[in-house]
Amino acid sequence: MLSPDIILAAVLNGLMNGAIYALIALGLTLVYGVLHIINFAHGATLTAAMFVVFIAFTVFGIDPFVMIPAMALGFFGVGYALQRFVVGPAAQGSDNNVLLITLGLSIMIENGLLAVFHSDTRSIDVPYGFSSFDLGFTFLSVPKVAGFGVSLAVALVLWVILIRTDTGKAIRAVARERMGAELAGIDVEHIFAVTFGLGAATVAIAACLLMPTFYVSPRIGNAFVLVAFTIVVLGGMGSIPGAVTGALIVGIIESVSGLFLDESLGQLGIFILFILVLLLRPTGLFGART
């Protein structure tokens, strides 16, 4: 039988992975909540951001954690522009079309990266990559713990932005009642683009947190998107606290079920949970019925 030490270690590990998933899910859930679309270019955006972090480190020697503010700002701009000038105009208000356009974007981004960087798997070797905190029963990776902290802080900041700022209030207004918001004088197209930008920014931060311990190849983002969908559903589509809680739960379930079932079938656990939540409580843990 497995000792409690191992299970505790797995739980801690699951929490740290979950925090990263939370960031990726945040972008997805925000865009869903406001635009009511599923952004299929989310994974490709993550991959692109990871490549930027990779370049910044290998060419300019900039540490991924130092890159966080610049990445967040830069990708906010990219996301804003994409929604404002590509997705929005091309979709002409049809959700089906948004789906195709985001798919088209992801094909372009993925293969553009493939053409430029080739398909090699690349990783960076930061000086603290292997340093760890010794807890006696396990070693906690320093970059992962730092990632955990940053991730929760970002979620908190996002939450404060939505609750406190005027833009945040406008976003929530558009999410709840688009027509009403429009009548109240809110520039809906602008708000859509801001939301899309925020989604891209969170993913860019996730990229900074992933790179010290993970690797990047032109298709790697997809590995995180499916799990992010699960989290979004579990937490309730559009809910930020839901996404964070859902992500931590999924992280732990994935980790612990991996111990008992084995890694491959452990993935099954996530999808079955996903289906059960959808069938039994489709609004998720924190979602309100619309």
Binding site: S3, F214, S255, G258
Partner: peptide, 19 residues
């Protein structure tokens, strides 16, 4: 221990090996 490709994390596999 089986794991999928791509895997997001191999810590669990490492933990099992450790155990």
């Amino acid at each position: 221990i089986a794991h999928p490709t791509p895997s997001r994390d191999m810590s669990n596999v490492a933990l099992q090996i450790k155990a």
